[in-house]
Design a protein around this nucleic acid. Structure first.
Lengths: 206, 206
DNA sequence: GTCTATAATCGGATAGAC
DNA sequence: GTCTATCCGATTATAGAC
């Protein structure tokens, strides 16, 4: 789109490779445990090259976290406030389960960031997430007033959904150990998804 | 109990202070992000003193994790396999909620360790935890066969309980942000505990 | 835009005086 | 048992040739 018309862009390819490598290393080692050398090795580029594209480790980390944020927001839109509670919650829980399945690294980075007290995404918690919760709380309370849900604190429900769905990414290793080492295959995961929806909906609908 | 009869023991006091400081720093920074200097400063002792009592950072981390393990096992016993499902699950969920409330640092270290793939506690996952899950799975399946619970995969239930209860420790900062900055007071936490029990039991009992 | 060589700093660990 | 001074490997970051 810019001057350099048809350039498949070396820059773009390298940035992508570095971001992908960084996502994996930050997910495995945490921010403090990750090293630029490990990221460079995984991306298949020399170490100074990483610094060329991302001058500081903190900046690279921010870039990775912001990618994860985008995915989180997409999943958040699955909570359709116009739908009825069963449909809205089913769609949302399934979207969050799929996100944990398809982006386990991002989910783990997110969890790690929250564990540390959200040093990088605090402003997101203060603004976008707070607004998301406020608006969805109203919807849940309306459903309760209409007698379609049990009288629960909406946040208790949200926390249960977030924690349970992300557990399938965050604790994938623990799960694999308990499943005789193999982890969940697609079929087992789909069953788990269905049952998570059933248990939560069974617990909150009248 | 040994030769040095009535020694209140400088050693004991220092070890306790260092372990407490290490728990806090590991919980905040993760293993990789924690530094011996930060732990020493928090414990109020010079850095080499930490190495005197705990020669290596990895060893100190193991000592902290083992403390957490003990607490986990105590809570696990709250799952009374002789009781009826409502009573057993209620007691267990409440015990896990109380653990998250009373030992938030330990819960966060546990979560961080699981996130990284359990490098230190893998043998515990392979032995004690696997056995715990196997035996409780049998109990849940019996309850299902007796028609007292819906036909669910027991592990889906366990994961939901673990993830949801520990969320109150792991995401305490996020929760505080969403609760207008104050965090949950005792009353709000007790309400949440009750509702977590109600939703899960409502979702799995017939 | 790439990468070798290197600077500068941090952090785990230790020596040795007290 | 305590702690100052210090070592040294690891790590972030940069300079500068190509």
């Amino acid at each position: 789109m810019d001057q350099s018309t048809a350039k498949p862009s070396i820059r773009e390819g390298n940035e992508r490779a570095i971001l992908a490598a960084a996502e994996a290393v930050f997910a495995e080692q945490g921010f403090g445990g990750a090293t630029m050398a490990a990221i460079a090795a995984r991306a298949g580029v020399p170490k100074p090259n990483v610094h060329y594209y991302f001058p500081t480790k903190a900046g690279l980390y921010r870039a990775v976290v912001e990618q994860v944020l985008t995915a989180w927001l997409d999943a958040a839109h699955a909570f359709d406030t116009s739908a009825d509670p069963v449909e809205a919650l089913t769609t949302y829980i399934e979207a969050k389960m799929d996100l944990a399945r398809e982006m386990p690294l991002g989910s783990r980075i997110w969890a790690s960031e929250i564990l540390r007290g959200a040093p990088v995404i605090q402003d997101f918690l203060d603004t976008t997430l707070t607004q998301w919760v406020r608006s969805r709380e109203k919807v849940v309370k309306r459903w309760i007033a209409e007698g379609r849900l049990k009288p629960i604190e909406p946040k208790v429900l949200f926390y249960m959904i977030w924690a349970t769905t992300q557990h399938y990414a965050n604790a994938a290793h623990e799960i694999a150990t308990l499943e005789k080492g193999g982890g969940l295959d697609d079929e087992a995961f789909q069953r788990a998804k269905t049952q998570v929806v059933e248990i939560i909906l069974g617990g909150v609908t009248k």
